[in-house]
């Protein structure tokens, strides 16, 4: 690192590019999640091809891995920690894309329209999860640890409520087997999405060796 680099507040180009790709991954995954959950919970027809969008997410993951490796090979002294963080959490962003695609596939399994009390609960949790998506994306882009902590706390709360939701679905004898399976599998995927978002936020809010762990300040 040269002395004058200290007065630069911009990132090395490959790291900047990787950060942009990470944001594209999260934005694309959010769109996929919204489309897939609209299909699952509001019975909407999927207009966009989730598989094609998932390919974009996967390509961005590869691009980030390549760019970070190239950056570290060229200029390891700059943004070393952030480079390691990117490599640690890029898989989480990629998994969110996979899960959103899977939620769309679960919606296709349903043999009837989804409505009622359970669907209403999931809709509320979905809306809150979308907020966590945005919090996570912004906190990661701005390296804002306060927003990241908020994202992790909300994610943790949503996961607890999803566990409770799953218990109630399992105890509801009025549900058909198909509806119960669709709601149960869908809610588990919501929980997984929430965990991956929390992992990404943890890279901002938590020490490097605590990334992917639950909130450590509780």
């Amino acid at each position: 690192m040269l002395f004058f680099d200290l007065f630069r507040r911009d990132r090395p180009p490959l790291i900047e590019q990787s950060l942009e790709n990470m944001q594209v991954m999260l934005d694309t995954s959010l769109r996929m999640f919204q489309d897939a959950t609209a299909s699952l919970l509001e019975n909407e027809v999927l207009v966009r091809d989730l598989s094609e969008q998932d390919k974009t997410v996967n390509q961005k993951e590869s691009a980030i891995r390549r760019a970070v490796l190239e950056h570290v090979a060229i200029d390891p002294s700059r943004e070393m920690i952030f480079s390691l963080i990117l490599i640690s959490i890029v898989q989480d962003a990629e998994r969110i894309g996979d899960l959103a695609k899977s939620i769309g596939e679960v919606a296709q399994l349903a043999d009837g329209r989804r409505h009622g009390e359970h669907v209403g609960v999931l809709q509320d949790l979905r809306d809150r999860l979308v907020q966590v998506f945005r919090l996570t994306r912004d906190s990661f882009a701005d390296a804002d640890d306060e927003q990241a902590r908020l994202a992790m706390e909300r994610s943790s709360q949503i996961k607890q409520e999803l566990t409770e939701f799953l218990r109630r679905v399992s105890e509801d004898d009025s549900l058909s087997p198909n509806t119960a399976v669709v709601l149960a599998v869908g809610s588990r995927m919501f929980s997984r999405v929430s965990s991956h978002l929390s992992n990404i936020a943890s890279s901002v809010a938590m020490p490097f060796d605590q990334i992917r762990r639950p909130p450590g300040w509780e």
């Binding site: 690192m1 002395f3 680099d5 200290l6 507040r9 911009d10 990132r11 002294s77 700059r78 943004e79 920690i81 952030f82 701005d142 390296a143 804002d144 640890d145 901002v204 809010a205």
Partner: peptide, 13 residues
């Protein structure tokens, strides 16, 4: 201390 200034792009870091 100069080395630490290189972490400027990430707030908490």
């Amino acid at each position: 201390t100069i080395v630490s200034l290189g972490h400027i792009t990430r707030r908490e870091e």
